[in-house]
């Protein structure tokens, strides 16, 4: 088993952990944490795939783009969570069902 295989398996494991959190958690901020873990798996998988295919710099370039997108997702998600907490008094995702446009 090579280093690339181990890191790919690790990326799949981290992906599974993030997906499990996304499905099980109800707290909005914890859901954003789960999304962040999913993005870490994507970053790792991109660089490992770049290394495996002999284009490590292309993988790095794509990974930087994913990191920027991931950070913006966190910022916008946290801003939404704070606004939901202010308006509804809870971070429970089920409380969003009471929102009206």
């Amino acid at each position: 088993m090579t280093q690339t295989t181990v890191l790919l398996l690790g990326a799949v494991g981290v992906l599974g952990v993030g997906l499990y959190g996304l499905l099980r958690l109800r707290n909005l901020i914890q859901i954003i944490v789960a999304l962040q873990i999913l993005a870490k798996a994507a970053v790792l998988a991109l660089v490992v795939a770049g290394k495996a295919s002999g284009h490590v710099n292309l993988g790095q370039s794509l990974a930087v783009t994913v990191i920027v997108a991931d950070t913006v997702i966190a910022v916008v998600g946290l801003a939404l969570a704070v606004q939901v907490r202010r308006r509804l008094g809870t971070l429970d995702v089920k409380a969003l069902a009471t929102l009206r446009g």
Partner: peptide, 15 residues
């Protein structure tokens, strides 16, 4: 460790 130091620095500082 994979040989991607640029993205590692960004991940550590931003992530």
């Amino acid at each position: 460790q994979l040989g991607a130091p640029d993205v590692a620095v960004v991940e550590l500082s931003v992530g």
